[in-house]
Design a protein around this nucleic acid. Structure first.
Lengths: 215, 215, 215, 215
DNA sequence: AATGAATGAGACTTCATTCAT
DNA sequence: CATGAATGAAGTCTCATTCAT
């Protein structure tokens, strides 16, 4: 559960907060989102049922926290890549690599939880809270990808691209791959990396005699 | 609700079966997967609660049926494209178009339901039923995409590709785009279409002087 | 439990409705309002827990129903008295008698429940629902007493009185006596009846040479 | 909150004891008896949750204390009246006045709390603690009223009465009026005072040619 | 004496499912 | 076939009380 090592939490209550969140993640991963009972989370965390509610307003609040941890992690990874002194195409390759390598340290059950929470959180986003974080968190990710793409264009490595839309595509592709890894874990990740990298990059690299397919 | 017009269902009980399935889809889309009650489904379908259980073994069984309808639709669309007399690159473009146009006739709530069921169904796939359809249905889709890609290679339009892996990538990309459309419905679909098409196709089209990034 | 014999309830569901209400009254009387669990009510009524909620929206809804039964009973008793062919002073005496005799068929625990619900219901009346029945139910009682008092004035038995205010006083006195019977059940009811009757009636009877205390 | 000014409390801990009691009264009045949380009481009193339990054994203990304060106040008022150098009929009038004037300085919510505690306390009296104060406190009040009534008889102002029963009736009437003021606060208190005084007093004053209604 | 983090028993309520009609 | 009244397991959350500091 390397998932909850970051410490961007209100200090002072960090210990138990993390303990409960970690336990929740474990329990939900094992049982599913609804099957996973708060009582189990408490037991797993080694605290009383009431204590869970000292740190989280509701079960859904735990979901949100898990999802936020997930986004924190992604963003942190992206920032790390972005801050490295690399040409843009290498950065894109690193991105891809990071994304797919995530599955080597994460069980499908864990990844599935993210998806479940994601789907449920999305619903509440559509129905209730207008300033829900989801869209903003994705926007942040998108913008970081945009900056990499724009760097590439500036470096003359990438042809002029609609970086905003392309960043969206890239983000979607990475998420889609994650999704499909959930379905089929026998896929050859290394092969997937290279195929994806080549398909994506050779389409945006500046080339002498490119030919658009027009329309 | 054009979603449930196809009739690949056990004949004889078709009327009510479809009525219930349609009602379920509506109710779940409106309320969410867990919030949506069987009682509401029955009322929406204009039948008694007990009748629902004449046609479906359980609530989860309804989920499965909805998901199957979804896959039926996708597969039917793919087949349609594949059977057209078009060069492979046009077929890929059509695929992309179809995929993104789906959102013009589907509300986010409806799409969300698919995602929710998908995530939940996936769990049961991982935990319980080994011959669950999900992976096979995706495999069928993947194979159809493979055949398009291989057609392109045979036609000399596409460079020699690992069609299996690339089909997976394509599938993942389309799903990923769907996912992100759920998050951000303000995205410009037409722009996304062209950017995606170009990014994807120009990377696999045969070109005079392509330069691989190697590794 | 002669308390729930009246049948002014939506017909068709009368059986179980009454069974649950009767059970609830019994349980609440035994355990108190909060200690009395719905589970116990269900068991006492010989139905499932869920069945209780088929007939009542919530625990509070049961409270309300009990209170309404109580008011129904009082009103029915008042009407009976009022419709009898008696001079007003006899009617007042009958009222008093009825009121105090109620305790011969009702246990203190049962009467206490009424008081608890009454107090709680009153709170919700002050805080939330503006058209709560409580005040209207009391008003109806008050008006029936007013009509008795006015009859007495018309008959020349009572001196001209502010019938509205006096009816309120009469109502309050009867309720107050009920309250104190809860506290001290050793009181001699028959003695209380005659003392109260005399104190109340001799103050309102027409007399030759009454002397007001003025102010 | 003039309610808690008297200081018949264990000295030395008076400050915080009173602070907590006052806070409790406020919170319970605002939220109701069960809704009012100890945590809120503590916050309102400006002390820690644990501190509440330094001064009170339990929540119910607070209830009892509140009720006792209430009785203290009533008794103190009665004593004051009783010790004045007045004829008995004036004393009765003063009693009535005091009782109804109480509502001018007390909000319905506060009065309601008394009623709620009263009802709940009564239950515990019936079920558990045989030496509960309630009956004794009321007995004390009753005895003070008896002494007023007997004074009136001795003075020749009141006809010979069963002072014990009549004191009970008087007490019940005053409580009943309080109760009904909770229900209907629009009642004209001054009118109620005079009607009640006249109805009650003229029934017990010595008169030349009274005529009993017999039976 | 004062505190408040921790507790966990307990309660209401929901809802998928059954089955007698 | 159709129904919907009945069910009861299950789950979230509350809150009075304790106790180590």
């Amino acid at each position: 559960m390397t998932f909850f090592n970051n410490t961007n939490r209100p200090p002072g209550q960090n210990e138990k907060y993390i303990a409960i969140l970690t336990a929740a993640f474990k329990v939900f991963a094992r049982e599913g989102l609804h099957r996973g009972k708060i009582a189990d989370v408490a037991k797993e965390a080694g605290v009383g049922k009431g204590t869970v509610y000292e740190y989280f307003r509701s079960k859904e609040d735990i979901f949100t926290a898990i999802l936020n941890q997930f986004f924190d992690q992604i963003q942190w990874g992206l920032e790390t890549v972005n801050q490295q002194d690399l040409p843009a195409d290498k950065k894109v390759a690193r991105l891809l690599e990071m994304n797919l390598d995530w599955f080597k340290t994460t069980t499908p059950e864990e990844a599935l939880i993210i998806t479940e929470i994601w789907a449920q959180g999305l619903r509440s986003f559509h129905t209730a809270e207008p300033d829900d974080a989801m869209i903003h968190r994705y926007r942040a990710i998108q913008e970081m990808m945009m900056s990499i793409l724009e760097q590439g264009v500036a470096e003359g490595i990438f042809r002029p691209v609609d970086s905003e839309t392309l960043a969206l595509l890239l983000m979607a592709t990475l998420d889609g791959l994650g999704l499909h890894f959930l379905i089929n874990q026998t896929m050859d990740i290394e092969k997937l990396k290279s195929v994806t990298r080549r398909a994506f990059l050779e389409g945006i690299l500046v080339r002498q005699e490119s030919q658009s397919t027009g329309e």
